[in-house]
Design a protein around this nucleic acid. Structure first.
Lengths: 355, 355
DNA sequence: CTGAAAGCGCTAACAA
DNA sequence: TTGTTAGCGCTTTCAG
């Protein structure tokens, strides 16, 4: 008499379990399970009765039970530095598309630019709530002295590697792209430059700076003539750079901001003060966000293929999840989109310099 | 001799379970469980030994097991119409902040503007993978004839109610806000208007149109003088409206677009053709996205308090999850931010009309 | 091809 | 305050 599925009289409508289906179909729970997971191993007759019983009962397998038994969750933790940042939105769409296609779901780990948010997601990983991790942060999340990577789950990064982690990554070649920016600006005739930094410890920013300076140097530019501003990739820091720029007498004629947000903020600030872009100052951004094409003038920028970065990153992870051995890293092309915010410097500026 | 925790010789490092901790601390698994869930019910001595054992073993409770037993997952499904839309990003941040503060996680259900994506999330709900649902879609997700709401989970909506669902909601009063838009434009002296629609069946758009027209009518405007364009809330549809506007001889002097994306797209398109904003045409948007303040000229728009919408929606849900009875609906203020894209119509335009 | 049985790791009565 | 026990709902050997 044990395990008779009694219909509890409670008001809480208990949803159908595998036992209900088995009873109704006149088979064992094992057969029900098999009809769902490996239908080939079940006779047509049995399978048909199970299918009917499932329909009649409205049965949906309980995933917690399945997870417990099968030791997988079909969920991926996606770590994003700041979910409100438009740059990441399109990447998330790419990730989601790829994951959904393979039956995986996406749990968002929003760091909100705060390291304090990391422990929660480290725990999430250690407690077995996800099968893998995809991170867009350049830091390896850690808590209580244990790193997320030590949990032994498949893990990959998008948009930046995590230094020393050896994790597979999908990103653009920041150095090379920034080299192209330098080439473009020098080719236009610029000789005095400004560079707006991202966050102090950002590895991508380090690469971009190195590439940009190397590019200038290769063209014979004096690096003493480069001004630097510190930013954090966001609008306001670009505006702050703009204000400082305006306060200066001896201004560069071309600016490279390592994010579109900063470039747009800078442009807005100096534009408001009557400085014309690109006539008075050329500006190049980085990222190629949707709005870089909407602002006036359209922003010349290095376009990161965001949707593809997301998709490819997810694909890398799924390959590992399926037992494959994906490449250690993939670089995607990041073309320099030359639009309307860059032009040759004005003659008088060039004259002043030569004179 | 049953259940002796043997260290499996496999290469797969098995992570510590509650048994390992119990054995090491010399207590039962129940005591370990209690020290974690209800530490007050455990003696200091025992708790201390358990804590030490947890530390020594690096134990993290398996969540699948806990979920199965406790019948909850501490996860909320957040349904978003399109994750790449900047409008939703800030709302997600608000939701996440509130959920995290209560220990809940967020699974993203991205519909990608496609109804085909709904079934997956209906299943997710029925399979017990989440404790509650927060939706930003105006449709009730359904699959195989069963609606998501019928699963019996707490559910709430943000930014728009679901007609006929009776679900608690957090949103702005679209009608009232649009009334204010009409008042603003008529007050400026405009007499001929254009209205750019959102998606055909969008309930919010219906409200906005009704409010806008009612506002015009109240001011004695002939509704025959209102032009309509169909859009879908996105940039390109605003641009399309702009192209059509340019092709017209008899143009309105003021446009109300029911999303900032469309307003900005329209502005960009007509601006590129030499039409000046606001001198030749006034434009009002809706949403108050970050970039409405960055475009030139700054967009006059109805500002939806996105972060607060997210937070409040999540709070509503958490209250229900805690057994409370939250209000059936909450309206948040949506102020009309008057910026630089609206101004009185030019004299000649007004003359032409009177003449 | 099918069923019985043994848990996955945890929590919650119930006794002690 | 603590331990024992009985599962949560499912999958997966192992026999048959």
């Amino acid at each position: 008499m044990k395990k008779t599925p009694t219909s509890t009289g409670g008001s809480q409508r208990r949803s159908a379990t595998i036992h209900d289906v088995a009873a109704r179909a006149g088979v064992s729970t094992a057969t029900v399970s098999r009809s769902l997971a490996t239908p080939d191993l079940v006779s047509d007759a049995a399978r048909k009765r199970v299918t009917a019983a499932i329909k009649a009962t409205g049965y949906t397998p309980n995933v917690a039970a399945r997870n417990l038994r099968a030791r997988r969750t079909m969920m991926v933790l996606v770590i994003v530095p700041n979910i409100a940042n438009a740059f990441f939105a399109e990447i998330l769409r790419g990730i989601d598309d790829e994951l959904v296609a393979s039956g995986y779901g996406m749990i968002i780990g929003n760091l909100d630019n705060k390291a304090e948010r990391e422990p929660r997601y480290v725990d999430l990983v250690y407690s077995g709530q996800v099968d893998a991790v995809l991170s867009m942060s350049a830091r390896m999340p850690a808590a209580n002295g244990r790193m997320m990577s030590e949990a032994g789950l498949p893990m990959a990064t998008i948009c930046s590697g995590i230094p020393g982690s050896g994790l597979p990554f999908v990103m653009v070649d920041n150095y090379k792209a920034s080299l192209a920016v330098a080439g473009h600006l020098v080719g236009l005739g610029h000789r005095r430059f400004g560079y707006i930094h991202g966050p102090a410890d950002n590895v991508n920013d380090v690469e971009r700076r190195a590439g940009f300076l190397a590019g200038l140097e290769a063209e014979g530019i004096e690096l003493d003539d480069v001004s630097f501003w510190h930013g954090d990739f966001y609008l306001e820091s670009g505006m702050a750079a703009g204000r400082d720029f305006l306060a200066n007498r001896d201004r560069p004629t071309a600016i490279f901001a390592t994010s579109d947000y900063m470039a747009i903020g800078f442009m807005k600030e100096v534009g408001g003060a009557g400085v014309r872009v690109p006539e008075d100052i050329s500006i190049v951004g980085f990222d190629g966000i949707e709005f870089s094409e909407v602002v006036t003038p359209n922003l010349t920028t290095v376009c990161q293929p965001r949707y593809e970065l997301g998709r490819t990153g997810a694909r890398l992870l799924l390959e590992r999840l399926k037992g494959g051995t994906p490449p250690a890293g993939i670089y995607l092309d990041a073309p320099l989109l030359i639009r309307d915010s860059t032009a040759p410097p004005r003659l008088e500026t060039r004259m002043r310099r030569s004179g």
